[in-house]
């Protein structure tokens, strides 16, 4: 060993010594890079194929409003035909397409929820394509929104967050509410936990974004757990038929129609059947 180091030391001024050191350095750096650095997209052939499929679908179904490269299209009047989709992320595509909001059937104040037009595979491809254009929120993993094993404490916390942040638009029972200029916060009854999670991530349409800094992933899950339990707790509903869970407006309507209406019919019956009325 001593011999080797002595020999190396003796040859350190050899004309080829610099070259050897350079080659060694390059070799180590290259090896490290190959193992540590992120793999480029091209590395995954299946993913590349998905993006290509997504691009095809996008060009057919989405490009007319969002532009061929998802750069967005402005109308002649300066208003937006469709917003740019670069950087919206896979979560946005998954939310909009799998709830049927996109593609829109017609322009309007807001894209309504309807039956989805694309299959799950097609939606995945579209999401992959849009995600490939720029970094954005990814589709949440199933465990992010799995509310089934939420503890009671977590559900109650979700309820507090729900009442503080969500009920103003979505209503105390998640029945939905009106917003200015024909827009609305939709009902959340029967909505997938995944879509609720994505909506908080991306803030679709009128909804504000609840980023992970504002509302942690755990809190997002807690809110979902509360809404889902609110729905389950309604089976059967304590107190009877909920009249649409819209608050006092529908209660007043029923009070007048069923209550006063019914009792007025009774008054007609009572006064029509007196001792003096001969049939």
């Amino acid at each position: 060993m001593r011999l080797l180091s002595a020999r190396l030391s003796a040859r350190r001024r050899h004309p080829l010594a610099g070259l050897v050191v350079l080659l060694l350095g390059l070799g180590i750096a290259g090896g490290l890079y190959a193992t540590v650095a992120p793999k480029p997209a091209e590395a995954n052939a299946a993913q590349q194929e998905l993006v290509a499929d997504g691009r095809k679908l996008f060009l057919v179904g989405c490009a007319s409003c969002h532009g061929k490269n998802a750069e967005g299209i402005m109308n002649a009047s300066g208003s937006q035909q469709g917003p740019p989709l670069i950087g919206v992320g896979a979560a946005a595509v998954d939310f909009q397409v799998s709830t049927g909001r996109m593609p829109m059937a017609q322009t309007g104040a807001q894209a309504p929820r309807k039956d989805p037009l694309y299959t799950d595979e097609q939606t995945e491809a579209l999401a992959a394509f849009v995600a490939s254009l720029g970094p954005g929120p990814a589709i949440p993993a199933a465990e992010d929104y799995d509310y089934e094993d939420a503890t009671e404490e977590e559900i109650v916390r979700g309820g507090e967050l729900w009442r503080t942040n969500c009920t103003a638009c979505h209503n105390f029972n998640a029945s939905g509410g009106a917003l200015p200029d024909g827009k609305y916060a939709p009902s959340l009854v029967g909505v997938d936990a995944k879509h609720m999670y994505e909506a908080m991530q991306i803030g679709p349409q009128q909804m504000p974004v609840f980023s992970d800094n504002v509302m942690t992933p755990e809190d997002k899950r807690n809110v979902i757990a509360y809404v889902k339990h609110l729905e389950q707790q309604d089976q059967p509903n304590p107190g009877g038929f909920a009249l649409g869970s819209l608050g006092p407006v529908s209660e007043g309507l029923f009070g007048w129609i069923v209550g006063i209406g019914g009792l007025v019919i009774v008054t007609v019956w009572i006064t029509g059947h007196g001792a003096r009325v001969k049939k």
Partner: peptide, 19 residues
């Protein structure tokens, strides 16, 4: 007919409101 399901509204908190 359910009327005023108070449990769904939650306790009063001046910073909250519902549609």
């Amino acid at each position: 007919l359910q009327i005023n399901p108070v449990w769904k509204y939650g306790p009063y908190n001046p910073s909250e409101v519902t549609a």
